[in-house]
Design a protein around this nucleic acid. Sequence first.
DNA 1: CTGAAAGCGCTTACAG
DNA 2: CTGAAAGCGCTTACAG
Lengths: 345, 345
Amino acid sequence: MSSRPSSSMARSRATGRVTLSDVAQLAGVSPITVSRALRGERAVDPDLIARVKDAALKLGYVPDPAARALASRHGSHVAVLIPMLSNALFVDLLEAVQRTLRPAGYQTLIGITHYDQGEEEQLLREQLQHRPAGLLVTGFDRNDATRALMAGSGVPCVHLMELSDDASIYTVGLSQTRAAAALTQHLLAQGYRRIAFAAAQLDPRTLQRRDGWRTEMAAHGLHDTTLEWLNPAPSSLAVGGQMFAQIIGQNPPVDAIFFCNDDLAQGALLAALRLGVAVPERVAIAGFNDLTGSDQMLPPLTTVRTPRADVGTAAAGMLLALMQGKEPERTSVDVGFEVIVRGST
Amino acid sequence: MSSRPSSSMARSRATGRVTLSDVAQLAGVSPITVSRALRGERAVDPDLIARVKDAALKLGYVPDPAARALASRHGSHVAVLIPMLSNALFVDLLEAVQRTLRPAGYQTLIGITHYDQGEEEQLLREQLQHRPAGLLVTGFDRNDATRALMAGSGVPCVHLMELSDDASIYTVGLSQTRAAAALTQHLLAQGYRRIAFAAAQLDPRTLQRRDGWRTEMAAHGLHDTTLEWLNPAPSSLAVGGQMFAQIIGQNPPVDAIFFCNDDLAQGALLAALRLGVAVPERVAIAGFNDLTGSDQMLPPLTTVRTPRADVGTAAAGMLLALMQGKEPERTSVDVGFEVIVRGST
DNA sequence: CTGAAAGCGCTTACAG
DNA sequence: CTGAAAGCGCTTACAG
C-alpha cells in the first residue's frame, strides 16, 4: 500500500508505517519542516503548512508516539494517581479527565494507590520511567520520597480534590473542611444537637471533614469526643451498617449522624430499616459526596454534592496549559460544593 | 550523580539517564549482550548474566520504554477496552487485570467505550498507534472495522466475560445464558410462575441472559412476551425503581422479577419499600452479578455471583502467555458462576 | 555464545 | 522562515 521510496531494500526493518519522510517527500520539503508544520510550531510558512497537512492527510500519516517520546524525551500520555476506583467519586473524576485529555491527543495512564503511600511511590516510580507529559495526583498527603520524585522529574503536575494556599502548587478541588462545616450548620439549624461524626478509611480528606464538623460543633459548645466514630476499615455499605448499629446503641443517644461518605450513610439507612429505627425522627442521617443511589434511598439521603466532574475538567485543562508551557491564570481552583437537603434529616 | 563516560561533551542531548551502554561498560561487555541478558533471551553465558545484572543493579539501570518500543516495534503496555467504569463489575475486573499485569512489567491503558461501537473503534485506532503488546476487549459484539483493526494489527488479544467455541479466539468468561437459566430454575423451583425479566442498557450479555431466562420459561410452557421488559436506558438504581413501579402495576400480576443487573434490582427493592410492596410475599426479586450492597438490602438480594476477578486474572495470564509467544493450554476458559439465594426470593 | 553495524521514526540544537 | 546533521536508547538482523 504505502510505497516506501526513501528506504533501501537491504535488511529492511521497515514497519510498513507511513513516516515523516514519506510526507516530506510528497510535500517537497524536509522532514523537519513536516514535523514543525504538523505540531504547529512557530515559524513555518502558511503555504507549506497547507501543503504538508495535505500530504499527511493523503498518506494517512500518524506520528509514532514511541519515536516522538524518544526524541523529545517525554511521552504523549498523562499519568493519573487515584486512591480507588470502587469509590464512584473517582470514576466520575476520571471520566471528566479523559474527556478533556483525549481530544487534545493525550492518553491517560491510571495508577490506583489503594490509599497506600508506599504503593503510590512505587506506582509513580514506574510511571515516571515512561516519561509522562503530565501528572495528576490526588490530594497533598504523600511521603517524602514520592514528593522528591515529583519535584525531581520536572513533569508538570496538578493536584486533585483539595485546595492550597501555596502558590507553587497547582490544584483543583474544594474545601473539604468548609463543606463539612456547612453540612453541620444545616443539621444544627434543624435543631439537632448531639450530632455524631462517623468515618471509615480515614484518608486525609475524611479527616478534613472531621475537622470541619468538629470546629462547628465546638463553636456551638456541642463538641464531645464520644461523638467521634473513626473506623480505619475501607468504606462500604456493610461498614456503614455496622457503625450505625454501634452508634444507635450509645447513651446518651445521638440525634443525628454525619457519615463522611455516602456509601456509609446508605448502609446506615438500610440498617435503620432493618432495625426499625425511624429516620429522621429517632435519628437523622447525612452523608457526603452525593453518590449514585443516595436520592433513591428510603428516606432519600441528605448529603453534600461535590462537583468531581468539574474537578476533572478543570484539572485536565490546567495541566494542558502547563504541558504547553503556559502559566495558568490561577494556581488553586475552587469548584465549590452544595448541601443537598433530602428526607433523611 | 551518574557519570556518563560514553557520551561526548559537545551538543549533549543526554538525559542524565543511565543507559544500556553505561551498564555494558561497567560489566565489560557489549550493549547487545546487556540487552539480551536483562531480557532473559536465550544464549547468554550465565557468568555474563550475573555480571550484567550486578552492574545494572549498581547503576540503578532502568530500560527506557520509548526506546524499547521504537526498536522492537511494540510497547510494554496492554490496552484494555471496557464498556463502563460505573458498573462495579468492570472495576473489579480491572483491578485483577492490573494485579497480574503490573508485576510482569506491563502498564495498562484503559479505554472506556460507553457501550458504543463507534467509540470502541475510535479508541482501538488510537490505542493501536501506541503499539500495545497485548489487547483485552469485552465480549465479541463489535463492528467489522474494529474486528479488521484487531486482526490486522497482529497484537495478541484475549476477550473478556463471554465464552466461545471458535478455537481461533481467546476468551475468558462464563455462559451468561446458562447463568440466567440457572437463576430462572431456582425461581421456578421455589414455585414462582409468572416471572418477569427486566433489563436496561441491553448490551449483548444482557440479551444473552434474556435468552437463558426465555428458554427456561418456554421449556416450562410459561413464556409470555408481556413478561419481557426491555429498557435501553443505562442501568441504574433509579431506572430499576421506575421499572419496578411499571411492572408491579401489570395485570395479571407477576409473582417474581429477574433483573439483569443488581443495580436495577437494588433500585426495585428500594421502590418496593417506598410503595409498601412486600418482597418476596407479593413479588420476589432477583438480580445478577452480586454487586456491592446486594447483601445489605432489605430483604437481601438473591442474585448470581459472577467471578469477575477470576476473569481478570485468567485473561491477563492468558495474554501474558500469548505475548511471550506461547500457546495457552485452552482458548476458552470458563470461570463459572454461582446462584446466591438470599431473602428476596 | 557474543558483537559491530544499522536502524526504529522522530526532534533538538545549531546554522543560515 | 527552512534544513543538514546528529542523536534519543534501545533491538533486529547478520556474522562469526
